[in-house]
Design a protein around this nucleic acid. Structure first.
Length: 318
DNA sequence: CAGTAG
DNA sequence: CGGCCTTACTG
DNA sequence: GCCG
């Protein structure tokens, strides 16, 4: 437990196995597959021959594993905190509610645990996106508001909403050059109409900020007329960083990682704030980034610069 | 600083 | 053996 | 955990 590197290896092996056109009858059949090494092959062999995995038996019946993984599903609670809560003697979500060591965000995540876990039908996301666009353009005409994430990738239901925002007038709506900033107004307006309900994280870098370029809001919202809470993220990018922001928040994770690794191999650094030319950092292991970001106005520019065939959003479900 | 999230 | 997306906030 |  608590070894996410290792669990990630299992995670990577899953789609590899799922995509096999045949049923595995022997460990030899997975011998040369990527992401599957000796250890996983041994496990597969055991499952094939005995029908089960002895190692797993303990896990499923282990109260600790069950409690800690449950706690870890609460927003804001990671492996370390989950383990601490268990060691305090907590076993159920009800136990956690009595614990006063939880942060406000964690308490909120706990309070709406069942709500947040509900998936949102695509057409409802679509309506909420429209609502956000209406409210947004009322504050700032010409603002661009797009719902990314699995919604943009065409999924029929979404776990949350990733809203990516920019404005195309040459100014930098997330930098110190803007007095009040768009996001605080937007959030306030959305609270006024009872769309945004609880805050999780609200970070404004814009006032005198580090000019990191991105204002972010994480919180809970409701579909108009309902009380069911959904997770929503709002991110505001300057126009020159919008393409990389939209790309990153559309995902999926596998594509993001693939693009970032590709970027590095070609002498770039890619993240949600832009595509940069890597600099030769003298001391550090990792390549630094140049100030100059490669000019990517649209997502396609990022793909093109990296020499990666362009994928439409619905093709990014890797 | 560790922990957590995206 | 060491790397395995990076960056920024909360407490 | 897998990979080089």
């Amino acid at each position: 437990m608590g070894d996410d590197r290792r669990s990630f290896s299992y995670y990577k092996a899953i789609p590899v196995i799922e995509k096999l056109p045949f049923k595995i009858e022997s460990g030899d059949q997975v011998k040369n597959l990527p992401a599957i090494g000796k250890s996983l092959r041994d496990h597969i062999n055991e499952i094939v021959t005995t029908g089960k995995l002895s190692k797993l038996e303990h896990f499923e019946n282990d109260e600790k594993v069950r409690a800690v993984s449950l706690f870890g599903e609460v927003w804001g609670v990671g492996p370390a905190t989950a383990l601490k809560l268990y060691d305090k003697g907590h076993r159920t979500l009800d136990d956690l509610q009595k614990d006063d060591s939880l942060t406000y965000a964690q308490r909120t995540g706990l309070k709406f645990f069942d709500d947040i876990r509900q998936r949102i039908p695509r057409h409802e996301v679509s309506e909420m996106e429209k609502l956000l666009q209406e409210v947004g353009k009322d504050i700032l005409p010409g603002v661009t508001i797009v719902c990314g994430g699995s919604y943009r990738r065409g999924k029929s239901s979404c776990g949350d909403m990733d809203i990516v925002i920019t404005h195309d007038d040459g100014k930098r709506y997330t930098s110190k050059h803007v007095k009040p900033g768009f996001l605080p107004k937007f959030v306030q307006r959305l609270k006024d109409i009872n769309f945004l309900r609880e805050d999780l994280i609200f970070s404004i870098n814009s006032i005198e900020g580090t000019d990191s370029g991105v204002d972010t809001y994480f919180g809970l919202c409701t579909y108009p007329g309902r009380e069911l809470r959904h997770r929503i993220d709002l991110k505001v990018y300057p126009r020159n960083r919008y393409a990389s922001g939209l790309l990153a928040w559309t995902g999926n994770d596998v594509l993001n990682r693939r693009l970032r690794i590709l970027a590095e191999s070609k002498g770039y650094v890619l993240d949600d704030t832009g595509l940069y030319l890597a600099t030769q950092s003298s001391g550090g292991k990792r390549a630094g980034r140049s100030e100059a970001i490669v000019n990517c106005h649209e997502e396609k520019d990022v793909f093109d610069t990296l020499g990666f065939p362009y994928l439409e959003p619905h093709e990014r479900n890797l």
